[in-house]
Design a protein around this nucleic acid. Structure first.
Lengths: 146, 146
DNA sequence: TAATAATTTAGAACTATTCTAATCCGGTTG
DNA sequence: CAACCGGATTAGAATAGTTCTAAATTATTA
């Protein structure tokens, strides 16, 4: 079946990612990897991924989701986005890009890197090197027009 | 004395800010306002401002610092900066500008708005209006050269 | 001065996250 | 196949930052 083929290809990919990161392909990491990397890019919080994994029938603990997302981040498989003083968000798209953020709903929409041009970034304080540039465009629902 | 003159001018300014925001000029709000708006622009967290106020001899509670910073934010006297999933940061500079952020130390350095040029911001999702654009340039200490 | 409404407060409650120490694998070795 | 080893996982406790609550205080108005 096509469905199975696609799935097993995705599982292969997750296996490769884990191997590449030097992480043992455990049941839990495979399940989370499948959710994160099985299709389109994703934005998740620890809690949201945990709920999703549970709903999908995976048997794992919240602590494991925290551990795994942190390991994935160290390995460069996901990146963290700072939006909210309350919660950690992770993005499976580790390439250069930016975000629209809807504060009311927490929704995140990607902005391709090349649609924002940063001109003449001033040099960082002496002795420091630029790690990354994060652009967050905060948006809110327009009041309904009269 | 020049010192006193400067101080009382600053206090006048804080009073005006509070009046303008419709907030009663209580002892606590005046003390916090003096720390925040008495000189250069500041970056503070609730806890850091609380410690500072206490060190300066103000007698107030942590809850009041939280309340006050929130009220000041609603009134547009300070703005919140999202840097860190752990802590809320407030900036007394409410004009358009951006930040260098040193993750290791938590230090923040302003970047003037005009030194970053954002070209061709894509239009936001349908029905949404742009509230603000936050640019955070994350930097880290360069490894010492050999 | 009394009435009132807003403000402040201590401490409890809550939320997200990290820590801890015990248990559980998965892969190797004898 | 059994014993072993080190990493992975786990439940639950601990922590940090923040918010909530209800009572006491304070500023303003009448």
């Amino acid at each position: 079946m096509t469905r199975d083929r696609a799935e097993s290809a995705a599982n292969e990919r997750v296996l490769d990612m884990l191997r590449g990161a030097g992480l043992k392909p455990t049941r839990q990491r495979l399940a989370l990897g499948a959710l994160l990397f099985g299709g389109e890019h994703r934005h998740v919080s620890c809690e949201s991924l945990f709920d999703e994994a549970r709903a999908a029938g995976a048997d794992l603990s919240l602590a494991t989701v925290y551990n795994t997302l942190h390991q994935f981040r160290e390995a460069g498989l996901v990146r963290e986005v700072h939006l909210d003083a309350q919660r950690r968000w992770f993005d499976t798209n580790v390439g250069e890009h930016h975000h629209f953020y809807v504060e009311e709903s927490g929704a995140l929409v990607d902005i391709p890197a090349d649609s924002i041009e940063i001109k003449a970034l001033p040099s960082p304080p002496r002795g420091f090197a630029v790690e990354g540039v994060d652009v967050v465009v905060r948006v809110r629902a327009k009041p309904a027009r009269k």
